[in-house]
Amino acid sequence: MWGSMFRWLDPYAKPETLYHLCGRWLPYLMTLAIATLLLGNIWGLAFSPPDYQQGDSYRIIYIHVPSAIWSMGAYSSMAIAAFIGLVWQIRVAQWAVLAIAPIGAVYTAIALITGAAWGKPMWGTWWVWDARLTSELVLLFLYLGVIALSGAFSEAARGIKVASLLAIVGVVNLPIIHYSVEWWNTLHQGATITKFAKPSIDPSMLWPLLISLLGLALLLAALTCLRLRSQILIFEQHRPWVRQLVEQQHEEQS
């Protein structure tokens, strides 16, 4: 049953096909990502009304919330890829783990830095060791752990396996991050949009936030495409199709 259910995915698991597919999508995804992100951010920075309590400092939300949400979204995708790579031995899924990890690490760093810059004027401190902030910091260490482990073995295949295992185990941290503001006393406010109830934010602020959210999602997809292509080349470098491709591109450039 499983075999026939996922048969339609087979061509995408072929490195050469995926390399060209990513190459075709990359310019569209990148253009769309930049346009969407700039639209959402400029709208939020210049056109949304100031917050009645936090004044203009709240505008950090337009980068803080999207980066925090996708720091977890990227981790989920990475863990799913790791699982597929380990269980079904799909090589492109294993390489996707390596492609996504640095992007997730950067998103997590952005969420932490913008959080600190928002915390200072609102809470009076750059950092507190509370549940939400600490679990998000653990997420950064999980990403760095995956990156470090994947390169720590002389045999690349083994490095990927160990890194994938860490990525899967680290999934435990995701619900902890999400529910940390409910389970523990914290300075951090509760969920604004990632809940089933109506978002507790005015539409004039919600729209630019949702657009920024879409922008960082598209950027995640675009950067994954770009980085996955590099990984495919590294692991397929002895195949004739890569040799031909690289020569062709060299001739086009010169």
Binding site: G55, D56, P102, L226
Partner: peptide, 27 residues
């Protein structure tokens, strides 16, 4: 930014700095 210039521009500056850095590095 209503007196919050340091914090707002620090946030957006580091964000775009990091994102551009990652893009450049990956390319």
């Amino acid at each position: 930014m209503g007196g919050y210039a340091l914090f707002v521009w620090l946030s957006f500056g580091t964000t775009y700095g990091l994102l551009l850095g990652l893009w450049w590095y990956s390319k």
